[in-house]
Nucleic acid binder design. Structure first.
Lengths: 345, 345
DNA sequence: TAAATTTGCGTGTACGCACACGTTTTGTGA
DNA sequence: TCACAAAACGTGTGCGTACACGCAAATTTA
């Protein structure tokens, strides 16, 4: 591999001139510039990135806007781990990662965290944009400051993010429906259980439900489907009573929970010994894993949480340091978890 | 982040001494060594990898032992792409990748390629060990030369590879069985179609079959299963006649093909308009994709071919350049392809 | 035509580390 | 106490690039 010095010798100029040509800086006559560019092409010279970064000796900062994590079973635990892994890898390249946390249930907390983030100086941002309006208002500042940003897990339409990394919610719902259809062998009613009424934020759950319904609309329009919202999901007794009331309809054979809160339903099923009911939900947690293993939950759809954090961080790093432009929409493949494959994380 | 110079100042010695301590070279008194190590820990100093590699100015070579590729629809096309992607990324770090090709059906060709590889000098090796005995005989040399190596796609037991990246064949067979069981709703016979008699090599196919059978043994021992080997699978007419003979048994409702050659069966089914037959196979190719989309094939199990190549190469790179030790067994998650999710590669 | 600019290019230093080599300090034996 | 070797430590140069600075030649201006 040739170095700048080699090229300089070949072109019979100094390395300074080569440097100017490479970086398109002024101070070189058209003639010599053309000559040098030709030589560069011929020898397909590439600058040594190692030496380059050393000479630049810049330090980079990546700001991360992220939900607080309460325990290991929290959904956000794994994306965080992914960010940390990437963070370790890029640390030796003088790149640091700074977190700004918010309560994922509180839009005010989100706003405050975002504003705190904006007060700082950084070179790129990784964002979980749980609240759409609040996000969009603040993206303007990032755009003005020409700071690149990537969304993970939640998609924002019409934004200038360099990438989105996460699932395609609608289509994951469709797959869930296909599996449910197989499980039920096209007999029995279906109950869709949501955990709280979704505001405009976090509409991926609504997308999952839409995908689920659309499959049956196309393949089996006659099947009956109910959709409920658990009031006060944190109170076990009220949850218990509420679900029991719903299941008075003895035709219900399948349940679809479009979120990680499938745990609640699985607990209910186990307690009341209703294992004949088919259950599909989302996301791997320790609790969910045991339910998969004893087949209380039939399928879990996994969002690749770790990869979201890892790839998001790495993509930003590669963008600011190596000028690698990522794909705009990186929809992760839909991963199915069952008793058989759950061992492989 | 502190530099060697900073540490030297703190310890009131020269950078030379710090350098000796860091690399555990002789020439430093026990006392000062201890003092310096303490300071290094306190300030949790890490050497700047960029400067280090620049100073070392080493070039690295990764040797790849790989099957020849005949067309884009070849299974090995994507793993190769993965290697190439990784190769591009690490090229600017003065690391090159050299291929040694062999015919995946010919053990002699494998031996020759491996021997050619061993004649060269290189720093790490990525190996698709299609032939087990021939591999094991030659690993000794790599071990002696202390060259790290990684297997992809095919696992070798009791070897000193730093990692294996690929599927867990047995368990992928189990998942296939679970899906088949759902598709058939536990009615009808099953036909397992292999494409050639497997010698000891490439036993992942045998593992898939074992996994498949073991599921039914545990869940539905009464189901009937036949296992056939297509003679001369490259001749369409003889294949056609052979399969027709098998399907005289009208109870057969499901077919399992434990390899990418599921295409052959899909073609048959389409030609003879037997779409009611359930079909599960392996690996995504252009042809298979169309069969998934028109639902001739119900499920494909994907081996993450691209990732195998990409991660294998990257892991070697990180091992030799950044001292990152990979997981010994990196079983990739089992990915299911259906009409619904095939868009996301 | 001399002076004032502008253009075109070369030089030197810094980035942080690795390592060969040179210099100083310490310890040992006579 | 001195000589002398071995141990302990310091210095200098190079890795390939970036960039500020400076100088000479070419061009413009008076």
């Amino acid at each position: 591999m040739k170095t700048i010095k080699d090229i300089a010798a070949l072109a019979e100029v100094s390395i300074g001139t080569i440097d100017r040509v490479i970086h398109n800086r002024p101070g070189v006559s058209k003639k010599t510039k053309a000559r040098i560019e030709k030589i560069i092409k011929e020898h397909n010279f590439q600058i040594n990135k190692t030496a380059s970064t050393l000479a630049l000796n810049k330090k980079y900062d990546i700001a991360v806007l992220f939900p607080t994590i309460e325990s290991k079973s929290d959904f956000w635990f794994l994306p965080k781990k992914g960010i940390e892994k990437a963070s370790e890898e890029i640390e030796i390249h003088r790149t640091s990662v700074n977190y700004f946390y918010y309560d994922p249930l509180d839009s005010n907390s989100f706003k405050k965290a975002f504003d705190r983030l904006l007060e700082n100086s950084f070179d790129a941002a990784l964002i979980v944009p749980m609240f759409l309006n609040e996000t969009q208002e603040r993206l303007i500042q990032l755009d003005q400051r020409k700071i690149p940003y990537i969304f993970i897990n939640v998609e924002v339409q019409n934004a200038n993010n360099i990438s989105y990394i996460g699932e395609h919610s609608f289509d994951s719902g469709t797959l869930a429906a296909k599996l449910m259809s197989l499980l039920l062998n096209d007999e029995g009613d279906i109950l869709i259980v949501k955990v709280r009424k979704d505001s405009n934020h976090h509409s991926s759950i609504e997308n999952r439900v839409s995908g689920f319904k659309s499959y049956f609309k196309a393949h089996n329009a006659s099947i009956k489907m109910d959709e409920i919202i658990l009031p006060n999901f944190k109170d076990p007794t009220s949850v218990d009573r509420f679900i029991s009331k719903q299941l008075i309809n003895h035709k219900i054979k399948g349940l679809f929970v479009p979120s990680s809160k499938v745990t609640i339903i699985a607990n209910y099923i186990e307690k009341h010994k209703l294992k004949h009911l088919k259950l599909i939900g989302y996301d791997l947690s320790e609790e969910n894993a045991t339910f998969i293993e004893n087949e209380t939950i039939d399928f879990l759809i996994d969002q690749h949480p770790f990869i979201q954090g890892y790839e998001g961080t790495k993509a930003l790093f590669n963008f600011i340091l190596n000028d690698v432009v990522p794909q705009k929409n990186s929809y992760l493949p839909i991963k199915l978890l069952t008793k058989e494959n759950i061992k492989y994380l």
